[in-house]
Amino acid sequence: MTGGGLLPRDRAVQPAALTPEYKTSVTRSPRSPLLTLDSTVTEETGPVFGHDIIGPLDNDLINNFTQGASLANGERVLIHGRLSDQNGRAVPGALIEIWQANAGGRYRHANDSYFAPLDPNFGGCGRTLTDDDGNYRFMTIRPGAYPWPNGPNAWRPMHVHFSLFGAAFGQRLITQMYFEGDPLIDLCPIVAAIPDQRQIDRLVAHLDMSQAQSMDHLAYRFDITLRGRNQTMFENRPEGM
């Protein structure tokens, strides 16, 4: 038995709206406190996406921009992991969308004028649905770090943007995945918006040689946790008690 209500969002593990070191947040952060209320049916339901929206190359960013005609440039990596909720349950059939810069740190977007060249074989978007056990996988290239106009010589660490849907609109989450060992992570004011180092560490994907493939690609593991629902005591009672 599962109660319908969503667990209240623990704001202590989330970035505040106003984080002055990340300059754009200064004018885009509400100053009044959020109105905190129990979730309603509006937040407890959410859009459903079916397999009909997913094409065979959608989770393969090395191939999807050219539809398999030519390969993207860069260090080939598999990014994979498990989507679960706060109660440890897999979230199956969930839509994950990702976007990223190319190997040189350039986005294919009208607003990105960085002089690293576009890769004619790389778009930078992918999407997939989690399987029955909540697992997902993307084949891509390692994105380059890139400079940005936040302050003198500010650089974003290598990262992949992740957009996640659970089963409820109130579980909606957008975040970024970083790569283990990148020294720019500790210098980034967007990362530092997260107040708790343990939560930052959870955004850093770990090298996973068990899923790497010889002479082909490295692998990184990134597990993601969405908000859970209130549970009844019955549900949590250990077997036999």
């Binding site: 109660n87 957008i174 975040t175 959870r202 993601i224 969405l226 005591m233």
Partner: peptide, 21 residues
């Protein structure tokens, strides 16, 4: 009741959210 795991932390969608969404 076991303590629930923390939700993954959010990060800004950034200026290029359109590419993915």
């Amino acid at each position: 009741r076991p303590d629930p795991d923390p939700e993954t932390a959010s990060q800004t969608a950034g200026p290029y959210v359109h590419i993915g969404c």
